[in-house]
Design a protein around this nucleic acid. Structure first.
Length: 104
DNA sequence: CGTCTGACACTTA
DNA sequence: TTAAGTGCCAGAC
């Protein structure tokens, strides 16, 4: 499995996000080695073979808004998860990237 | 084999 | 500043 599939790469980056921090799809895609495949990151997380080891709830849009098609139960759940991780919210659906953006 | 869609991001009008 | 359109990668039909 040294092929390091693109999806595997994404999962690894997402799991590398520290608690209380959030990263955008573009940020993860960039670290995964696919600066143009931000969309693919979303799909990779959608497959999400390990929703527990892969905190996809820490991955948000470039604007910091949560995904409405979330797989855990809804963006509402994701908001509570992030909130429980000390993440600050500037809006009921937007994260404060100004202070919680994962600074790799 | 060819075509289309999809958890986005970026550029231009 | 806000809105709309386009481009990227991979998988599915």
């Amino acid at each position: 499995m040294e092929k390091t599939s693109a999806a595997e790469r994404v999962y690894e980056v997402v799991r590398a996000i520290p608690k209380g921090k959030v990263a955008t799809y573009g940020q993860v895609a960039r670290l995964a080695g696919m600066p143009r495949a931000a969309r693919y990151v979303g799909q990779a997380l959608h497959h999400n073979p390990t929703p527990i080891e892969t905190p996809c709830h820490r991955v948000v849009f470039s604007d910091g808004c949560l995904a409405e098609h979330f797989g855990f139960g809804g963006a509402s759940v994701q908001r509570q998860l992030l909130e429980a991780e000390d993440v600050v919210f500037v809006d009921p659906m937007h994260v404060d990237l100004a202070s919680c953006r994962w600074d790799a």
